[in-house]
Design a protein around this nucleic acid. Sequence first.
DNA 1: AGCTAAGCGAGACGGTACGTCCAGTCTTTCG
DNA 2: CGAAAGACTGGACGTACCGTCTCGCTTAGCT
Lengths: 189, 189, 189, 189
Amino acid sequence: MARPRNTESDALILAAAAEALLQDGYDGLVVDEIARSVGVAKTTVYRRWPTKNHLVVSVVAGWQGVVDVPNTGDEADDIANDLTTIAGGMCHVLDPAPIRRLVAELAAARMRDDDLGSAVDRLWSDRRAATAAVLERGIAGGALRRDLDPEVVTDELAGAVYYRVLITGGSLDDAYARALVRTVLAGAR
Amino acid sequence: MARPRNTESDALILAAAAEALLQDGYDGLVVDEIARSVGVAKTTVYRRWPTKNHLVVSVVAGWQGVVDVPNTGDEADDIANDLTTIAGGMCHVLDPAPIRRLVAELAAARMRDDDLGSAVDRLWSDRRAATAAVLERGIAGGALRRDLDPEVVTDELAGAVYYRVLITGGSLDDAYARALVRTVLAGAR
Amino acid sequence: MARPRNTESDALILAAAAEALLQDGYDGLVVDEIARSVGVAKTTVYRRWPTKNHLVVSVVAGWQGVVDVPNTGDEADDIANDLTTIAGGMCHVLDPAPIRRLVAELAAARMRDDDLGSAVDRLWSDRRAATAAVLERGIAGGALRRDLDPEVVTDELAGAVYYRVLITGGSLDDAYARALVRTVLAGAR
Amino acid sequence: MARPRNTESDALILAAAAEALLQDGYDGLVVDEIARSVGVAKTTVYRRWPTKNHLVVSVVAGWQGVVDVPNTGDEADDIANDLTTIAGGMCHVLDPAPIRRLVAELAAARMRDDDLGSAVDRLWSDRRAATAAVLERGIAGGALRRDLDPEVVTDELAGAVYYRVLITGGSLDDAYARALVRTVLAGAR
DNA sequence: AGCTAAGCGAGACGGTACGTCCAGTCTTTCG
DNA sequence: CGAAAGACTGGACGTACCGTCTCGCTTAGCT
């Protein structure tokens, strides 16, 4: 009965917001600017997303990538390989500076707002699930200790990577992924 | 030669800022209000910290406190205990929600501004150094593998904790610290 | 096409500013206070006048009001009367101390900023034009010398008044206006 | 017994203040800056002049120039010549833009503070006295009308010049001085 | 075909904080 | 005591965004 919303605008706004978020971080994303850059009125943005936070949630939700679970076999070496594949993928994806900045912004955004929080959580959950899947296969197949808590091992693996991304700024490459997986599997003792 | 800064003011400002930060979060901390509540001119605040961000970093730096390196002995069990002490301390400090929010803000701030970045880096370095010290003692005393890379193990330990703080939101307590250290030492295999 | 400015606010702001200006002088006029007293956001003031100075110019412009050209006839005496009317009006308007202060501020502001400068120029132009009009009528009607330069005579008349306002601080009243016009017309010789 | 004041500083401060006043106007003169540029502590400035205004007064007082009264004779033409000399001198001195700016600043300063006011008044009084002296000689010698009010004629002459300086921005040169004196003497009628 | 409800652009508005700038005073140490 | 250095109070300025609002125009789709 009424004039329908222009769905194209949605996409353009999201794209512009995504770029701004990547480039200038949460605070650098200015709703007014997004609207102007897309050639849309600020009202049009606010009609779709009642808040800047809501907009950011949408943007982040759109980044959801598909992570497939590597599976080269059930032997101990296969499990190690598969974990290295996952860790290497994380290193590869998270190493570039703009991505690091973004991850930091998202970590901060996660805290600001519950809606945003769960959107961000959903972002990371896939890769986390992949790791857990490999670990459980390893446990089931006997390649890993039966009493292992996959949760904790996942924290070690992913944690080390995110720690370098967010806290130390340390470099991330395949060599690091290999060393990390090796140490996690072998233990320190 | 000139009139010295009133060091008492520093402390009062930091205290007020800390309280505001914990109570109302980053955005809830208003420089003007801090100054007024302490009975100091806003300029006095800005003379010490050029930016609200810098002030917040100082506040958090004050929280970090002194981290002393635990040392209960060189046996394998002692090393494990000492690492658990460190990990437990981190869990204890970083668990409360307002602190998590702050750590996230700081991680983001670290990326935005080099000045701030190094201030934040200094924040974490102490605890990181403590962990490394214990690990090296373990290696030297034969309690840990000779070929171990302390860097990587530190990443695993601290990384897991920060990962829960920033990414998953998982809980952090002594039990977790113990489980984490156990797994790191024993390995997954 | 957009929401129109609330013209009532303009008037209220100008009124409040005028009052403050007269009561407390230029420095006593505080934009923030004006806004609050009118019940308007400070931004609303700054949207209309980019600077406190601009606001003051507007206020004064409003004081200038419409100057109509007196015209009692073409005889020599009529011209003299009309000139006296204009000069008397100027004396009347410019005599009060706060106004003198303002005129001085405006003269200074005129030099500092081109934008402001032309605004101030517009302020004075009306009365200047009125004087010139009467003079030209006098020349055309034969009451004044044919070879007279109206520009110079206007300078003499208005100049004397502003000179007293800005430089000597001399008093300004109807008697002075009459004496001035008489001398200008009769010459010194 | 006590350390004597460094009198050289006085001169340096005044010089710096004068330059700042000329270049950037009253508001552009910043006490802090003056002190720093001279290599003196702000306190040193404030010990000598309790207020920025007082400093400005001193500066202006220092500008006092000597104006001598031209006297080529008592004939009507001589009086005209002498007046033209004075008017031409004023035009010459006041025409340059920085001087115009300064005159405006002084007019404004005059209003701000009584002390400053009288200092500024003293600045102009010499030239004003010179004009009056010539006029009185003219009256006494019969070259000018006996019933002339020298005050008013001075206003006309000086006023026209200052009017162009401060209000219209009109040009000032010898030709203008001649035209002005001619019109003042001959009258408009 | 016309009515009508909603979309839309433009931009005004209230509100809140930020960081900056100066005047004038105060405090310390040195000569 | 004078001077240099610079901290301190106090107050205003102008800026930046957020989220809401008010216009007048445009555009479906129901009557």
